[in-house]
Simulated scan of single mutants.
Amino acid sequence: MGDRRVVVGLGPVPPGSVEPLLGEDIDFRPEPTAEDLALAEGAIVRAAVTVGEDELAAMPRMRVLARTGVGTDQVDLDAAARRGIPVAVTPGTNTHAVAEGAFAHLLHLVKRLAPLTELIRSGGWAERTSIPVGDLEGATLGIVGYGRIGRRVHALAEAFGMTVLAHDPVAEVPPAIRAGSLEELLAASDAVTLHLPLLEQTRHVIDAAALSRMREGAILVNVSRGGLIDEDAALAALESGRLAGLGLDAFDPEPARPHPLYRHPATVLTPHVMGLSARAAEATFVAAAQAVRAVLDGGAPAATAG
């Protein structure tokens, strides 16, 4: 690679995932500075890093940006295109990890793991039957967004004996599980998982009106993008009992700022890491490194945004 430099702006990076493809001219910077990026011809940066017109203007040598995952809502794709900078994404590398994360949240909430753990810690064994434990078998799961992750969630739901409904404004949904509308899905589901990109038309797709259509005591899980949910409305739904539980692995903004919702006992919260399992992280960084390598060698990445 000569004097070319690649900044990897996310840590920790799985050992050996990028070095074979990018050689020794790599700077590992958990929080890359403007100076770091100004000297770089390629960068692998996490989805939460903002890359707009000003940031791109400060990267005169940049030839390729690779994002871990598929989220590009923080990237000005038009500005990157004007500069001839492809924005590579890594679809499919964390599909199974994110789907498992959705079920981790769902099981935590349905099986009441947090209150039962606290009961044991406080010596309340005799009150164990006062905390009702739910079931996935026989329940209806509504999947909003039927891309790779949504389809994997469907497979897991069937393994648990759940009935599945799905809705996607773009992707094709099999007729046997297709809900006619989001409203129909919400009204018929005991639990709902979100797997949509954050776009203008999907921001706050789960708002007060949507929550009012959900079944009393339903569970809601979001392992996609934080802006899909109106957090004030979600808090009101928890307080009223409309929602029995809320699982969040995505927040708006990120890093998450303090919000009363996060202190509610019927929430389970993880800091956008469900897609960063050991296996998924390695696959994601390998794919990102392959994309950078391809461009620096005069080719094109396998998958780009926009």
Rank of each mutant, 00 (worst) to 15 (best):
G2W: 11
V6M: 03
L10A: 05
E19Q: 06
E19R: 13
P20W: 05
G23R: 15
I26P: 11
I26K: 13
D27T: 14
D27P: 14
F28N: 02
D36R: 15
L37H: 08
A38H: 10
E41W: 04
V49K: 08
E53A: 13
D54N: 14
L56F: 02
R63I: 08
L65G: 01
T72H: 04
V75C: 01
L77D: 08
D78G: 09
R83P: 06
A88E: 06
T95G: 12
T95M: 10
A97C: 05
A97V: 01
G101V: 02
H105K: 09
L109V: 01
L109W: 01
A114R: 14
P115W: 15
G123E: 12
R128S: 00
T129D: 14
P132V: 04
V133A: 02
E137W: 14
G138C: 13
L141C: 02
G145I: 00
Y146G: 07
G147L: 08
R148F: 11
I149E: 15
V153L: 07
E158T: 08
V173G: 00
I177P: 01
R178Q: 03
L182G: 03
L185S: 01
D190L: 00
T193V: 12
L199I: 06
R203C: 07
H204W: 09
I206C: 11
D207Y: 01
A208S: 04
S212I: 03
R225Q: 00
L228F: 03
E231T: 11
E231Q: 11
A233D: 12
A234L: 04
A237R: 10
L238H: 10
G241Y: 08
G241L: 05
R242T: 06
A244Y: 05
A244M: 10
R257W: 00
P258Q: 13
P265W: 15
T270Y: 14
V273F: 08
V273I: 02
M274Y: 09
M274H: 07
T284M: 11
V286Q: 10
V295H: 05
V295G: 10
V295W: 08
L296I: 14
D297E: 13
P301Q: 11
T304H: 07
A305C: 01
G306Y: 11
